[in-house]
Amino acid sequence: MSNFTHAVGVICAGVLAFAGVAAASLLSPASGPAEEPGLRGPTGVITAGPTLIGRWQAPKPANQNAYVEFTEYGIWFASDGCNTLDGTWSHGAGEALRVRSKDVMTAIGCDNLPIPTVIASAQSVSFEEHGDRARFTAADGTKTELMRTHDTSVTLEGRWVSDNPASTGHAYLDFKADGTWRGSDGCNSALGSWELTANPNFDPTAMAEFSMESMAPGLLTIGGYSGSTDIGCETADPQLPLALEATTWFGFTNADKIWLVGDSTLQRADYPPTTLIRDTVS
């Protein structure tokens, strides 16, 4: 197996072909409005009406572990309560909705609610109740309603640390709202600029080719990378901040967990994809 295939396999491990889209049932909204919806589109452009940005769920007593998150970066991710799916999105003129997603999803049995497959098959969306309720329509005319439970985007901004048990615990990456970042491997520091967007080359149909460029929903562009090196540091974590490259493929696992793959590190078996979790302690 090539190093390239090995690296991609780290992310795809345990992923199974998921059954076709279940017949989506109508998920009626709960009474009472959610917070006032934001007006930012997936690229930060101000839109003329409600936006999908935020979290959408079925009302209680439905499984509240099932949801979809539409981020301001044009990336979405969802769970049916156990299994996850992600991709890219854009909301065009009128009700047109363009969603791309992977054709596979982890398969774990639980109290499943098919929100991920509902989103993956949606071709249009309309809003009601001041944007607090959205009706997603599939190609076959099936309509599914979800309610907004959060109106702000999941963000990359903040401090992230490795979830690798072998990590020294001293390394971090800190993404700032002004588009700059700073990081450390525990001894040596580095900094630069960042921009996260939907991957324009995301193409789920090409997944069989094991191309990170086609299967990663996000593209993290790193600029102005600079840093210092201290020799003989015993607490250095070799994955951070070296995981960042000018072209870094990116994905959200959930709101507090991400993965990164530098474009060139795919060729190196000793640099597998880096998984980070949001630091809520520091």
Results as ranks from 00 to 15, higher is better:
R182H: 07
V8Y: 14
Q267C: 01
S25N: 09
E209G: 09
T253V: 12
E213A: 14
L242H: 09
G54I: 01
E129D: 15
S211F: 07
T71K: 01
I258W: 02
N254R: 13
T142S: 15
L27K: 11
L276S: 07
L191D: 07
T117N: 13
R55H: 06
G141T: 12
L219P: 02
A171Y: 03
D151F: 04
D80V: 08
G49R: 13
R159P: 04
Y225P: 02
G94Y: 02
A208S: 14
C110N: 14
S124W: 05
D230S: 08
G186W: 02
C110V: 11
T274E: 06
R100M: 07
Y225I: 01
D103P: 02
T221A: 11
A93C: 03
G141Q: 12
A138Y: 01
A122K: 00
T5C: 11
A171I: 05
W76N: 07
A139S: 14
P116T: 05
S121Y: 03
S153T: 15
E234G: 11
C233V: 15
E209N: 08
P116H: 09
I222P: 03
I231R: 11
F252Y: 15
P217F: 01
N3F: 11
T152W: 06
R182F: 03
N112H: 05
A13H: 11
Q267A: 14
Q64H: 05
L244N: 00
T47Y: 03
V68R: 00
S211H: 00
Y225K: 10
L39H: 12
S153H: 04
D86P: 00
Q57V: 14
A190R: 10
P61M: 07
R55L: 09
L97I: 05
L26P: 00
S162V: 06
T180I: 09
Q239K: 11
T144G: 05
R98S: 12
P114Q: 06
G179I: 03
D263L: 04
R133N: 09
G227L: 05
D80A: 11
Q267V: 01
A23N: 12
T152E: 12
D140I: 10
T265F: 09
P61W: 04
P42D: 06
P59L: 12
T51N: 10
L260H: 00
A171C: 05
N199R: 10
W249D: 01
A166Y: 08
S126Q: 10
F136R: 00
L196W: 00
W160A: 03
A255M: 02
P273I: 08
L26W: 04
Y271R: 15
E213T: 12
T106Q: 15
C233W: 05
K60D: 09
S226N: 11
S124A: 11
S228P: 01
L146A: 07
R148L: 09
P33M: 02
A120S: 15
F127E: 07
D151G: 10
P204F: 02
N164Y: 02
T253N: 11
G262T: 00
S282M: 01
G141N: 09
S101Q: 11
I277K: 15
S184A: 12
S25P: 00
L240E: 00
D111I: 07
T51E: 13
S184Y: 08
S28Y: 10
S264G: 05
C82F: 07
A269N: 07
M1K: 10
H6F: 14
V161T: 10
Y73A: 13
P241G: 01
V8S: 05
G94I: 03
G49T: 08
L219H: 10
T180S: 14
A243L: 11
E209D: 10
